[in-house]
């Protein structure tokens, strides 16, 4: 595999995306809603002195958790513990939702979109290998979502510390679990989804069908991330490490099998299944 060529394929797609306002404006809005607006509002509500009922309800949930889980939650006061658990646990799946939503939109078009625009013919006649084209498409699909997540994560960290820090007892975010989540768990989750979505993109007849299929793929992965995030409450670091490891194995398998499912005939739109 010639990585220079892979990067060229990825660059072409990234270039096209980032000169298209109709792509990156919704992306920024989506990231803004999940990483800025929702945390700002929710943490603001929890840390208000008047929010006694909400704090009590969250406190009851926390006390019902097994002993080890309860120990993880920081904060001297009920309000601090409620803000901590909301920032660290409840909003964790957001880190999966944002990149998946952004990247699946790109990934769904990776092959079928090229075919519809007639670009598939250009790539099919090029000296690029199918693996290089596939890897380039995968990178171009994954990078925008992951970059949005990293940017959102940075902003989110500031918001959490700014909003919840005073009641928790100082700056506490990112926690070890969140570092693992962002750099160990999110990338393989994203790659698993994209490996399937790009593969589907080569097999379906139209971009619309690819978008539908992408939604179907994203949904269970988002649900899985929610389930996994509950494990983070019990032992965030260990849970993130285990979930991440499993996701990496699946991602490597998914990418390898996805590459085999694409060929030049599918780029031209004449392969079997088209």
């Amino acid at each position: 595999m010639r990585w220079g060529k892979v990067w060229t394929v990825a660059r072409i797609d990234l270039h096209r995306l980032f000169i298209s306002k109709d792509y990156w404006v919704p992306m920024v809005i989506l990231g803004g809603i999940f990483f800025v607006f929702i945390p700002w509002v929710l943490l603001g509500v929890v840390t208000r002195p008047q929010s006694i009922n909400i704090v009590q309800q969250i406190g009851e949930v926390l006390t019902s958790l097994p002993g080890a889980a309860g120990d993880v939650v920081q904060g001297e006061t009920a309000q601090g513990r409620a803000a901590y658990s909301m920032a660290v646990f409840l909003l964790a799946p957001v880190a999966i939702v944002v990149p998946l939503t952004i990247s699946s939109a790109v990934g769904a078009q990776a092959i079928v979109g090229e075919r519809e625009r007639g670009i598939g013919e250009f790539l099919a006649h090029s000296p690029l290998t199918i693996k290089e084209i596939y890897a380039g498409k995968l990178i171009a699909s994954a990078l925008p979502g992951y970059a949005a997540t990293l940017g959102g994560f940075t902003v989110y960290a500031f918001i959490v510390n700014f909003r919840a820090g005073p009641v928790v007892g100082g700056w506490f975010f990112p926690t070890a679990g969140w570092w693992l989540l962002i750099f160990w768990v999110v990338p393989p989750f994203l790659l698993v989804a994209l490996a399937i979505i790009v593969r589907l993109s080569a097999r379906v007849q139209s971009t619309a069908a690819a978008q539908q299929a992408a939604s179907l793929i994203s949904l269970p992965i988002i649900m899985a991330s929610y389930v996994a995030s509950s494990g983070f409450v019990l032992n965030p670091t260990l849970a993130a490490a285990i979930v991440g490891s499993i996701a990496w194995v699946l991602a490597i398998w998914g990418i390898a099998s996805g590459a085999r499912a694409i060929n030049r005939e599918r780029l031209l739109g004449v392969g079997s299944g088209n």
Binding site: R11, H15, R117, F122
Partner: peptide, 26 residues
């Protein structure tokens, strides 16, 4: 060097971009 029936160009990019990326690939 292939010229397909539909030119298969990246519409949102400039003519130079199209040639630059092709130059990188070939």
């Amino acid at each position: 060097g292939v010229v397909p029936p539909k030119p298969a160009l990246y519409d949102r990019l400039t003519g130079r971009n199209n040639l630059e990326y092709a130059a990188m690939i070939w």
